[in-house]
Design a binder for these strands. Structure first.
Lengths: 166, 166
DNA sequence: CAACATTAGTTTGACTTCCAACCATTAGAA
DNA sequence: TTCTAATGGTTGGAAGTCAAACTAATGTTG
């Protein structure tokens, strides 16, 4: 454990070099990187017993919440905002575990559908209960700050062209 | 581009399932994941001409800001909060490019020091100028929200035991 | 002093992400 | 209608992360 805040020190270094106009942004970026690492570690620790990663969990939940329990791989990539190659990878692993199956699209021979299986739904449900209890309900951030954080990131995501609406 | 906010929809799904107490936390985690992805992509786009990644840039800057321009690999891992194996990996690549050299510790034969080279310092300086101008000064988030975001994450990092001080 | 424990770094392996190249299929245009 | 462009997925390669196992060196203790 460090006896000082490394990000605060980086901020001081930036100021000391006259990069004041960039110091705040640097701190934002560094903070996000570290927050990502911390939260991903917590999520993965919780998901370990279910033998899935967060990427796999997200794909599973997306399918579970879809009306038919099936989606084209491309659509999954759009929704999860990841590269097509990543989708291939994730679905490969879910398929190997029997949580998902690949099915050809009836109309378009180019398209492959991922279908969630019964065991897949089961795992998703159980994993969600655990994640809710062990991670999502205990972020260690108070409600007001959580809302502020989400709002700030929504602006960022919008500026990155993630979605269209206001 | 999606015509709706996928994270807002996930929040609605959580509420619709009666997971209201976890909905906010789920949104926080998902937002951080996506923000990480967006910012990392911007940073990497800016660093591409310098032939370094963000992980390599961070190690380089840590060495540059150190008093002697040299640090034990273990210390680098502590400061950057990454696994020892990751440090080995990053230093390997920086060494291959001539930006860093491995030097044995004079007193402790177990310890290896990473020393930043002249070209390493040069790249770090130039890359910082670009990052400041192209990423850090243009996060797309207003100053107040940036501060709120950093504050919220500081609480998270503190709760994760990142550092000791208040 | 010898035996055990701890520390530092590396190696291997699993997993994620992305990019670039490639194949198949569908859609559009000359 | 045939030729070309766009779309959907997969593959291979580079890079990052972590965990676990391993070697080497240092510290501690009986």
């Amino acid at each position: 454990m460090l006896s000082f805040d490394p990000i605060a020190e980086a901020h001081r270094n930036w100021s000391a070099n006259g990069w004041d106009s960039a110091a705040a942004g640097m701190t934002v970026v560094t903070s996000i990187m570290r927050a990502h690492q911390i939260l991903l570690a917590r999520v993965h620790a919780t998901l370990t017993p279910f033998d899935i990663t967060f990427a796999q969990y997200e794909a599973l939940m997306l399918l579970k919440f879809s009306s038919k329990g099936r989606l084209p791989l491309g659509k999954i990539g759009q929704r999860l905002q990841v590269h097509p190659a990543s989708v291939t990878n994730v679905i490969d692993r879910l398929e190997a575990k029997g949580f998902v199956a690949r099915v050809p699209h009836p109309d378009d021979q180019r398209t492959t559908l991922a279908v969630i299986s019964r065991t897949g739904r089961n795992v998703a449900t159980k994993a969600t209960a655990r994640l809710n209890a062990e991670v999502f309900e205990q972020t260690g951030i108070d409600d007001t700050s959580q809302q502020a954080l989400v709002d700030a990131i929504t602006v960022l995501r919008h500026s990155a062209g993630d979605f269209d609406t206001v």
